[in-house]
Amino acid sequence: MTTLERNEKLIQLALLMIALSAISILAIITLFIFKEGMPIMFKYGVNKFLFGLDWYPTEQSFGLLPMIIGSLAVTAGSLIIGIPFGLACAIFLTEFSSLRLRQIIKPIIELLAGIPSVVYGFMGVIILVPFIREHLGGSGLSVLAASIILGIMILPTIISISIDSLQAVPRSYREGSIALGATKWQTTKMVTLPSAKSGIIASIILGMGRAIGETMAVIMIAGNAVSIPHSVLDPVRTLTSNIALEMGYASGEHRQALFATGVILFIIIMILNTIANATAAKQRTK
């Protein structure tokens, strides 16, 4: 073996070790959450956790259904707001705006991703919540407020990844379409967007991940009441809020029940990601 080959082997080995340790840290965290959370779920019954309506963790009542619905509601709400605005913005910046404008705006949008979530929550509390209370009723701390703030928080993710994938569409596709007498909008809708589809779906998946995992901003504006919301103006508590709000003082079975909350959150995220990836794969083969 020459020195060159030996070096090559050494580098390969080092990279392998690093990769393995990164993966094993993630695996250990996952195992730890499951180890802490599963026993209590089996002790009282998985169904009680998944479908129970009452959360009195100090009295052996561990119903997480309101929080599961809460998490799904604010995530769906944020996507309903974030997808149309994010896509419209990405399309405008790549297809219709001048290069100058794009070069100014894109970095600003990416900067928005770095604003701490507590700042978004604070804006929600002082502007959005009073606005909803005065104009729509209720306390203002609501599914609606959380959806709007989360929708704004996921915009940078959706916009910047969608811009990248729209820009990756070869110019020759657009030229081919325009040469056939297509307008800019027809070209965008029927040639550019379908070609960028898989990247756009990826941006939505990442945005969804951010929305369902967000904690601080949601705690500040969602109201945190443990009840199933009947309208978008009702308050909700999400799974993440549940953990963050109670972890500080929980002990014993209460603490284990919070780990069980984590397990359920983990599983929900896995399911949503799998669905989203399967849709993306199906779109690609089409």
Binding site: P170, S172, Y173, E175, G176, S177, A179, L180, G181, A182, T183, Q186, M190, V191, P194, S195
Partner: peptide
């Protein structure tokens, strides 16, 4: 064009596209 640039669509839709628009 100099470099052929069919759309990433079916053969049929490549032609039908121009008609539809």
């Amino acid at each position: 064009f100099q470099k052929s640039n069919p759309f990433p669509k079916s053969i049929f839709d490549n032609i039908a596209y121009g008609l539809r628009i």
